[in-house]
């Protein structure tokens, strides 16, 4: 039983990380119907910055509260960095193609992904780099059973507030309302006086910020980063977004958690090498029966 719960815990923390990245895919898709293939690599660059900051600040020597404040600072800086970079890419690459056929921005996104990957190669070098263990691996729970370390706690204290903030932003603020309007009908949104390009830029920023935060947690939690990490993580996150229903914010969270759980449980009970195959087999089965994803909208709509 403890073993099972332990695997679930691992699955949920990993899944929360996947969900953070999936949100970036789903938000951008929701607003401009673009699958932003560069999103995974954006997060890799965030991890590069996090590693550089950790070395420059000498954070490995910090202890206690200083470490946690340092982590908060990393989340903030990497979030701003990835958010800003995402906005810049939208401005330079996707915005000029706003009225072009859908394939043009899609192919450009793949191009941006390659550019990012090469920047990462330049930044990190070809080999995987180990990310310093800033947080102690001691069990926070009493007893011999379930392991819940500071790293697991980190995932929760970063992911949960950010997701709550995102939900408040989208549901209650003026910007959030504008985002939902643009995603439903950009022309009608412009006709009520919304600056559509600015709302799209804001969406890229928010998606990028969440990705930047995820990159820090990734480094601290997984402890290995490399210039190719964006591809695989991006793929899992994209799958999570599709599984949950692309364009749906709660869908991305649910999809991420499901993928994290399935991956952890299949690694534990079937075998590590089968985990990927099982995740994608489940994706295929779900999409056969629910093409719009778990929480996606049906295509039927009253007109």
């Amino acid at each position: 039983m403890v073993f099972f719960l332990q695997q679930c815990l691992i699955g949920l923390t990993n899944g929360a990380l996947v969900a953070m990245v999936a949100l970036g895919y789903t938000m951008v898709y929701g607003i401009i119907r673009l699958i932003n293939f560069a999103h995974g690599d954006l997060i890799m660059l965030g991890a590069c910055l996090a590693l550089t900051l950790v070395s420059v600040l000498g954070m490995a020597a910090w202890t206690g509260t200083a470490t946690w404040l340092g982590v908060a600072l990393l989340v903030l800086l990497c979030g701003l960095f990835c958010g800003g970079l995402n906005v810049a890419v939208d401005r330079l690459v996707y915005r000029p193609l706003r009225n072009a056929p859908k394939l043009a921005p899609l192919v450009s996104a793949i191009g941006v992904s390659f550019i990012f990957m090469n920047l990462g190669l330049f930044w990190l070098g070809p080999a995987d780099r180990s990310f310093p263990e800033l947080l102690p691996a001691t069990n926070l729970l009493a007893g011999e059973g379930l392991q819940f370390t500071a790293k697991d706690l980190l995932v929760i204290v970063v992911v949960v507030p950010l997701m709550i903030a995102l939900s408040v932003l989208v549901k209650t603020t003026r910007l959030g309302k504008a985002m939902r309007a643009v995603s439903q009908d950009p022309t009608a949104a412009a006709l009520v006086g919304i600056d559509v390009d600015r709302v799209i830029a804001a969406t890229f920023f928010v998606g990028g910020f969440l990705g930047g935060a995820a990159s820090v947690i990734y480094g601290l939690y997984i402890n290995t980063i490399g210039f190719q990490m964006g591809f695989q993580n991006g793929l899992y996150a994209f799958t999570a977004a599709v599984l949950g229903g692309i364009g749906s914010i709660p869908g991305a969270v649910v999809g991420g958690l499901v993928i994290g759980l399935v991956r952890a449980l299949s690694s534990a009970y079937v075998g590590e090498r089968w985990a990927g195959a099982i995740v994608f087999a489940i994706l295929i089965v779900i999409l056969v029966f629910r093409p719009e994803g778990l929480l996606g909208r049906g295509t039927k709509e009253k007109v």
Binding site: Q184, L191, R297
Partner: peptide, 20 residues
Amino acid sequence: GRRIFPRLTVRENLELGGFM
């Protein structure tokens, strides 16, 4: 074609009309 926002409430639609 009216182009109201179908998945926003009537109130939200009207609030967007006064976006400025």
